[in-house]
Design a binder for these strands. Structure first.
Lengths: 248, 248
DNA sequence: ACAAAACAAGAGCAGTGCTCACATTCATCT
DNA sequence: AGATGAATGTGAGCACTGCTCTTGTTTTGT
């Protein structure tokens, strides 16, 4: 047991095969959707008998989990990159929309109907699946700390707080939303967000949720053809209009 | 050929069987989701051999089309009923949310990921699938005609305009959304809406779309577990908060 | 060199949608 | 009343899926 960076050929082969499985899986997903993701077809493409693929992947669901986490990470990275240029809700929405256009099937995988009889293991899926939502909350909270939300503007200390705090305060004039009696449920949500390292008040929480569901709803409507045909060239305009309608 | 309201026993049997197929199909859909909708299982439950069911349903996709139209109609009816009490965007959102809670799998069927390799025939699906969206547009246009949108307040003559025009104008203060240069795409959308019998301006169009995608996005997020567990008792509060945040 | 672990092969089970050749039952027309 | 043809039901079969189990082969570590 001297120097043990030396991988045995078998280990190298295994890693290669595992990588190819994910790669082929992603390709099949992109081509025909999650339903056509077939372990048998993957085995066939690997030049291997169907049962042999179970040496590398416990079950189809396990592969699904990998692809889901992969997609979440890809989306979050794309958003992070876009926000490197311009930090705004609009930029975030447009980045998500662009990603959904490039990977429509992956969008469906992570934000569409959950796979029947499949439960994503939260410990694998939650972290990547929360990144962009957390980014949105930060954006909203930062903008709101200037003129509406009551929380102090202290910098949050998330695990990997790569996104710096936003600084274009002002220009935000929300409708009279959280005025009367702020439901205790919303307050609970805000508290829950603090647990995640985000420090925002109830007003910013509801504003962030509204922005989030609008963006998600618009993209899903477009991707899933809810508006019918003929919207291909209007997608970005729609996103921009909706985000501005929300006051951002 | 004298009096021919007399249905032959065979015709009656056929109609009964067809009805049972739809009924069983809906039940299977409600229980385990669309993936578990199996013609073989239906045949089994009918006490019939698997191939015989194709005498009543051309293909599985045809049954799917029926169930989709059925779901759209059910939802639209539920919304119409609710709006009979109180005509507001909030009431519409809450009605949709309640329906989605009662029929989560049907919600996924009509607003979730489209079925792979299935194309809903628009001529069957568009009319029921557009009803509640049209209702929303009417609500928004009616409210907006008082103080924001520029279109005249004339009553629209829809095919079956059951929903009377809303009359609680005022109280609407949208953010500075459509201010600068209204994208020509939005204008095109507004024009398209006129084709459908709705007479609204571009400002109301974008307001309606925003409300629509927010409602859809919120419900889908809740139904698809996007927010994680623990939101069961907060759903209505969330809907109310979001709708108010939008200024309605 | 040898035992143990890893990998691969092939047969098999239960399930799916759908087709086709064949048998039966019912409705209709002469 | 009886023949004709359409509607309905049967059973076998094809191609596909995920997954398991037994058997054989190859590589690894001692």
């Amino acid at each position: 047991m001297a120097d043990e960076t030396a991988k045995t050929p078998r280990q190298r082969a295994r890693e290669e095969t595992e990588a190819r499985i994910v790669e082929i899986g992603n390709r099949m997903l992109d081509e025909d959707g999650v339903d056509s993701l077939s372990l048998r077809a993957i085995a066939r493409e690997l030049g291997i008998v169907s049962s042999a693929v179970y040496r590398y992947v416990r079950t189809r669901d396990e592969l699904l989990t990998i692809l889901i986490a992969d997609a979440f990470t890809s989306l979050a990275d794309a958003v992070d990159t876009a926000l490197g240029q311009e930090k705004s809700v609009e930029a975030l929405g447009l980045a998500m929309l662009a990603w959904s256009r490039r990977y429509p099937q992956r969008w469906a995988l992570i934000y569409g109907t959950p796979i029947a009889a499949y439960q994503a293991p939260r410990e694998v899926t939650v972290e990547p699946g929360t990144r962009v939502m957390a980014t949105l909350v930060q954006l909203v909270a930062a903008a709101g700390s200037g003129d509406q939300a009551g929380s102090e503007s202290g910098d949050q200390a998330g695990p990997d707080s790569g996104t710096a705090p936003v600084d274009d305060a002002g220009s935000r004039q929300p409708a009279a939303a959280a005025s009367p009696e702020l439901s205790p449920a919303i307050a609970r949500l805000a508290a829950e967000l603090e647990t995640l390292g985000l420090d925002v008040g109830p007003e910013a929480t509801i504003a962030a949720i509204t922005a989030w569901v609008s963006i998600i709803g618009l993209i899903s409507s477009l991707r899933f053809g809810q508006f019918g045909p003929g919207f291909d060239n209007v997608e970005d305009d729609l996103m921009t209009s909706v985000v501005r309608q929300l006051g951002w």
